[in-house]
């Protein structure tokens, strides 16, 4: 009888506890969220595609370059030190193309670094809301112009201008100076907007500290804000250089077609990218020296920009002035 009663009691109370606990447990149970899973998968695929593409490019470049360097007549030491580039007749010195690229890049940076940084300082530290509202869109238009247009701008405006100033007999129709200067104008918006982002990210409290000490706007900008944003500015510069090294259309149109080992920026010289564009634009038989050489040069360009990127990461972590 007692047993019966207790059983009865248990039956009455126990199920209540169980059901409420079960309800809680089921409330807390891990949900399956198909939307979340889908998005996660999609985002992963996006990231994976860019990595796969990079790997594919590296693979293809390396494969074709190995064909080039595997030829008995091509020696790596000649490739890197000889000053004549005529693959079809067995001269494999890449230096003329490298010096031309170095010159156009140098002049591009000579324009875009100081002007880009100055414009960024102006936009972030000095410009009124109104001036900024006009200037930023204009700079963005500059960034949106196709590079081939810049190429013809170099050829039909910058070159005649240089010939006018420096004399027709001194300046060739195609020259690396003109291409480099116009390339600098092209890269300017990139350097400017990246530098400006870095400058604007510097907290207002640092500017106030400087102003509070009786600093002028210039002192504040140059001695506090720019150093604090230095790592971002370096990154902007390096990306600008990578862009200049890789730029093709302007140099193809305005720098000259034909390798020329010279350090005179007023003479025509073909850059690495210009060479690739010219050779691949013509009739080209597979596995000829010309064909294989463009991959070797492509690989070299890739190595240069990759090292620049690695360098920029190093510099950024080295010079970072952390402001919390």
């Amino acid at each position: 009888m007692e047993h019966e009663i207790s059983k009865h009691l248990v039956r009455q109370t126990a199920p209540v506890v169980t059901s409420s606990q079960e309800a809680l447990a089921s409330k807390l149970r891990m949900r399956f969220r198909p939307g979340e899973t889908l998005i996660m998968g999609f985002l992963f695929v996006c990231g994976a595609i860019s990595i796969a593409t990079t790997l594919g490019i590296v693979f293809e470049l390396t494969k074709e370059s190995l064909l080039f360097f595997g030829k008995p007549e091509v020696k790596l030491i000649d490739f890197l030190t000889k000053t004549t580039w005529q693959p079809s007749i067995g001269n494999f010195g890449v230096l003329p193309l490298v010096t031309a690229t170095a010159m156009t890049t140098f002049f591009a940076m000579l324009i875009s670094l100081p002007l880009g940084l100055s414009a960024a300082i102006y936009l972030s530290e000095y410009a009124s809301q109104k001036a900024r509202g006009i200037l930023k869109p204009v700079l963005e238009i500059l960034a949106g112009i196709p590079t081939v247009v810049y190429g013809y701008f170099a050829l039909t405006f910058m070159t005649p201008l240089l010939r006018l100033i420096l004399g027709k007999e001194n300046v060739q129709i195609y020259n690396t100076l003109s291409a480099g200067l116009v390339m600098g104008i092209m890269i300017l918006p990139l350097v400017c907007s990246m530098s400006e982002d870095a400058l604007s990210a510097v907290p207002r409290s640092l500017r106030e500290a400087a102003y509070g000490l009786g600093a002028t706007r210039l002192e504040t900008a140059v001695r506090v804000v720019v150093p604090a944003a230095f790592s971002g500015i370096i990154a902007a510069f390096i990306i600008g250089i990578s862009r200049a090294v890789g730029e093709t259309m302007i140099v193809a149109v305005a720098a000259g077609s034909g390798p020329n080992f010279t350090f005179n920026p007023l003479k025509a010289a073909e850059t690495m990218t210009g060479y690739i564009a010219r050779i691949s634009g013509g009739d080209l038989a597979y596995d000829t020296p010309d064909y294989n050489s463009i991959f070797a040069i492509g690989l070299m360009l890739f190595v240069i920009t990759l090292s620049l990127n690695i360098l920029s990461r190093r510099l950024v972590s080295r010079f970072r002035e952390v402001y919390e």
Partner: peptide, 15 residues
């Protein structure tokens, strides 16, 4: 501001 200096709410040393 050279003659009247200021200390701010949150410490803001230069980096």
């Amino acid at each position: 501001r050279k003659m009247i200096g200021m200390v701010f709410q949150k410490p803001n040393p230069f980096p």
